[in-house]
Amino acid sequence: MRRLLLLCLVFAAATARAELPETDWLQLMPKADQEALERMPEIDHDSPEAQGTFTEKGGMKQAKGLPAVMYSTKTVPAMNGKDIRIGGYPVPLESDAKGNSTLFFLVPYPGACIHVPPPPPNQLILVRYPKGLKLADIYTPLWVTGKVKVEKVSNDLADAAYALDAQKVRVVKESDL
C-alpha cells in the first residue's frame, strides 16, 4: 500500500511539471476564416496592403481595403476558458517599475506590426502577466501558458479577439524545437 501511494505521488508530481500541449494559432480561428485566409492573395512589402495605418501613437491598426478576414473578430467559442500553451512573439504595451512587460499582445509571427499588416484580431491575444517578464526585443519567441478568454480588446495599437491571463511566460529555448 505504501509503495502504491509513493508511486501515485511521483506520478502526480511528474504530471504537475508537464507542460500543456501546444495550441496552434489556427485553433483560435473559425474554419470559414481559415479558408478565407488560404484564398487570400499574398501580401508583400511592396503592395498597397503592406502600408499599415499607423496612428499618431504608433499603432498597428489594419489599413482600409484589405479582405474582410483580415478584420475578423470571429472566435471559436470552445476556446473560452480553456487552459492553453501557445507560442508567439510579444508586442509590449505596459511595463512595471522594473521594466518588465506585464501587458502585451502575443502575435503568431515576428515583426507582425512592422512591415506588413498585423494579424486579424482573432489571431492576436492580449496577455496579462502581472509577474512581468524582461523582454530583449519583439523578435524573442515566447511560450505563454494560461486561461484564454474570448474577449474583444481594442486600443490605439490594435484590436484583439482573445485575452489570456498568463500563469507562465518563458522564452522559447532551442531545446524546445
Rank of each mutant, 00 (worst) to 15 (best):
F105M: 02
L126S: 06
Y89G: 02
F54N: 11
K57P: 00
A68D: 15
Y109W: 15
K147A: 13
A136H: 07
Q167L: 04
W25Y: 11
L28Q: 03
E35P: 00
L26N: 11
L133Y: 08
Y89M: 03
V169G: 10
D33F: 01
P48E: 06
G88T: 07
Y162M: 01
L7C: 13
T15Q: 15
Q167T: 15
L37I: 09
P108D: 11
M29H: 00
V153R: 06
I43F: 03
L20K: 06
L7H: 04
D83K: 15
T15L: 14
P119V: 05
G88N: 12
G146C: 06
L133V: 14
D24I: 03
M60F: 12
N100H: 15
A158P: 03
P30A: 06
D83N: 13
Y129W: 13
A12V: 10
G87M: 13
T75S: 10
P41G: 04
R170H: 03
L5C: 04
Y129D: 08
L4Y: 05
P92M: 04
G65W: 09
M40E: 12
G111H: 05
M79N: 09
A68C: 01
T102M: 07
P121A: 00
T23R: 10
L4I: 14
P92I: 08
D46C: 00
A12S: 14
D176V: 03
R2I: 04
K173W: 00
P110E: 09
I114F: 10
L5S: 03
A63I: 09
D24L: 14
G81C: 07
D96Q: 05
V10C: 12
Y109D: 03
D24P: 00
